[in-house]
Nucleic acid binder design. Structure first.
Lengths: 192, 192
DNA sequence: TTGAAAAATCAACAAGTGTTGACATCAGCG
DNA sequence: CGCTGATGTCAACACTTGTTGATTTTTCAA
């Protein structure tokens, strides 16, 4: 009534399912989050989940659909690109809690082959995409590997494993401690 | 017959179960590896797995039992401790394939709470234990966090996700590229 | 060889999974 | 009103999971 464009009742519940699914996939991964649990948390019948999304796999694909917000490193002074990258990912991961798709993929990729493939793709677009404009083509793969290993290692230990030593760091700590490493991986000299 | 001390038939199959379980847990994680699949790969009845180990959980605990081979960094010149650490873990992880407990824990910790707790413990003994003799107590937690994030990030991207950019690196490449970072995390200056 | 313990087999259980189809309820429009 | 299509409910399916008990086969010493 109050809406202007067909406030279809179904759209609200569809959104509720999606929100519940994002939460569940975020903290339990694909296999750990059951359709029944997702439905229960949204106060909905499990059958509706299938009716609205077709299958659990398609629900996951919808929940994980990503907006690619790439940082434009070319517009950042060369000496601050490491810091910019760390801030970019930290902002993504701690923007709205229990929402980021990369963490969902990380939690799922271990056991779910499709999620692993999607993570490869996301990695390629996010990290390689960010670095391509600012590093030599001959070094792109190597520098991307280094950045990915450190940033995914940070995400893993901080958000998935929650090792106290890493999880207890403040945002400021993280930026201060990891920026120099990423800076070297992006723009520093590589050992020959 | 050819053995001297009670070559109990059961010990052989128990060992076979353990080997099969290590393999399965290593590539599928705790939830992904079913008791039936483990038994099938060892050509035995699923019931035997339970009879010999009590439960899947106890089998996992037995498969993941770890020999703590800590590197003694105090005996390594200060400037080479980063390299020594990288070589230590690389040797662990690529020693005998499909055997390392840390990878098994990494694959399982995502969905299995006990595995996550064990990983915290292993991390504490392996990383913190190696660093304690050679870093100031006031910096131990912070330096351990940095080393753990990079080394687990390497393990994650190389062995679990198998991102081509990281998995394609040779052992020599890995040592060359990651040692400087770990060296800085262990003995270099920390940003204030 | 005989007999007892160890090892292996088989079928079944209770619980949980994703998914489906038949049915009931409700909305809004003619 | 009555009708139609969208929403929601319920029970059941086929399957997989870890685990158990009864039963049979094998092993090995007396």
């Amino acid at each position: 009534m109050t809406e202007e464009v067909s406030p279809r009742k179904g759209d609200r519940t569809k959104a509720a399912i999606l929100a519940s699914a994002r939460n569940a996939f975020h903290e339990l991964g694909f296999d750990g989050a059951s359709v029944r649990a997702i439905a229960a948390q949204a106060n909905i019948d499990p059958a509706m989940v299938i009716r609205y999304f077709g299958s659990k796999q398609e629900l996951f694909a919808a929940a994980v659909r990503i907006e690619l917000r790439l940082p434009d490193l070319a517009q950042v002074p060369k000496s601050r690109r490491g810091r910019a990258l760390v801030e970019h990912f930290l902002h993504r991961w701690e923007g709205e809690p229990n929402e980021d798709a990369l963490i969902m993929l990380l939690r799922s990729a271990v056991s779910h082959e499709d999620a692993a493939q999607r993570l490869h793709t996301v990695f390629a677009s996010q990290v390689v995409g960010a670095l391509r404009p600012v590093v030599a083509a001959s070094e792109l793969k190597r520098r991307s590997a280094l950045v990915a290993s450190q940033m995914l290692g940070l995400a893993l230990t901080r958000y998935v494993l929650r090792l106290p030593a890493v999880a207890d760091l403040t945002r400021t700590d993280v930026i201060r401690d990891f920026s120099p490493t990423i800076q070297r991986y992006v723009a520093g000299p590589l050992p020959h």
